[in-house]
């Protein structure tokens, strides 16, 4: 129970402290650069998907906004970064910045449509936007290369020093560094009063409004932020693989990222990253057994996950995490309270 603002502030400060397992987690990530030199491509994909899932966690885990079209921002970021590099602006950070800005702009513009109605409406509207964007990319073949993909993406060196090499070492370190930086920012945001108010909105929008939280403005803000993060993830993918295809906007992107987040657990920021590791390793192994049919097993996994109870499955990594960080996990996480039966 939080009684006074000092108590709340103290609690937030306590939550804002870095704990040992978190340090270990990032140290392990950094160590992978040295220890797994032959898996850079896979590691890079993991980091990009992890960042993408992190962006979804910001809206789903912290604000309770469901989305089935998050690939729209991811794809937009990828195309922005890819096109920029193709037409001569080769500086990676400039590409990231512009991708983030445009994705944020799209997020801001669409947020007003998305943040109305029930969960179902949100799912459909986000899905609709993603489909429209995919269709635009498909039709504007003169710009995006259409079904053939965007080729000829040439990146300049990172910070003017580090050239992208063929082993993907620079690419991986670059993606990891960007993801870490963005993670730190996101971590700071969710332990701020702003983040606390988001959780209040997630748990009960009506009460949140009653205690004076500007619900809509907060949701718009976090949706825009999340869109920017997804845009950066997409840009990272485009820059490190130096190729963009229509695949970045496809429906299965949105579905996969949801799955990644659900595997890792929602609402504690590490879920997306942990889920990305599990998902990619799983995919890698499944694809080795049955190439091209691995989606079947992903489907099985999803069905089982939901039947067993997503909350219960996600509670396991969270509980472990909570025990490691020595922090009692707060109230059991209710992601999406049962839809109130409309009277």
């Amino acid at each position: 129970m939080i009684r006074t603002s000092q108590e709340a502030a103290a609690r937030l400060t306590r939550r804002g402290r870095w704990s040992l397992p978190e340090v270990v987690f990032w140290a392990a990530a950094a160590a992978s650069v040295v220890l797994l030199p032959d898996r850079y491509l896979l590691l890079n994909e993991i980091v990009v998907i992890g960042l993408f899932a992190l962006s979804l966690d910001l809206i789903l885990g912290y604000a309770g906004i469901v989305s089935l079209g998050h690939a729209a921002f991811f794809g937009l970021g990828a195309y922005v970064a890819g096109l920029l590099a193709k037409h001569g602006v080769a500086d990676p950070f400039l590409g990231l910045g512009l991708a983030a800005a445009l994705a944020a702009a799209l997020g801001l513009a669409t947020s007003f449509f998305v943040l109305r109605g029930t969960d179902l409406t949100k799912l459909m509207v986000t899905l609709g936007f993603a489909l429209v964007l995919a269709e635009i990319a498909n039709q504007a073949a003169w710009l995006t290369g259409g079904a053939d993909g965007l080729q000829g993406v040439v990146m300049g060196p990172v910070l003017g020093f580090f050239e992208f090499d063929i082993f993907g070492r620079t690419a991986y370190v670059y993606s990891l560094a960007v993801t870490f930086a963005l993670f730190v920012v996101a971590r700071r945001i969710v332990v701020s009063p702003f983040g606390l108010s988001l959780k209040a909105i997630r748990d009960n929008p009506l009460r949140a409004r009653a205690v004076g939280i500007p619900v809509n403005r907060r949701l718009v803000a976090v949706y825009t932020l999340s869109a920017a993060y997804a845009g950066v993830a997409g840009a990272l993918l485009a820059q490190t693989t130096q190729f963009v295809s229509l695949d970045v906007l496809a429906f299965h992107r949105s579905a996969d990222v949801l799955l990644v987040l659900v595997i890792g657990g929602v609402g504690y920021l590490y879920g997306g990253l942990v889920g990305a590791v599990l998902f990619k390793v799983l995919q890698d192994n499944l694809a080795a057994i049955t190439p091209q049919y691995w989606h079947f097993w992903i489907g099985v996994l999803l069905v089982i996950l939901v039947l067993v109870g997503r909350d219960r499955v996600a509670a396991a990594p969270q509980a472990v995490w909570g025990r490691l960080t020595g922090r009692r996990s707060a109230a059991p996480l209710r992601l999406d309270p049962k839809p109130v039966e409309d009277a």
């Binding site: 089935l68 029930t118 799912l123 799955l259 989606h295 992903i298 999803l302 049962k338």
Partner: peptide
């Protein structure tokens, strides 16, 4: 269950 759970479940079925 919530709509999100249902959607995840159905996506799983469709993939399969």
């Amino acid at each position: 269950r919530s709509h999100l759970d249902q959607v995840l479940f159905c996506i799983g079925l469709v993939f399969m």
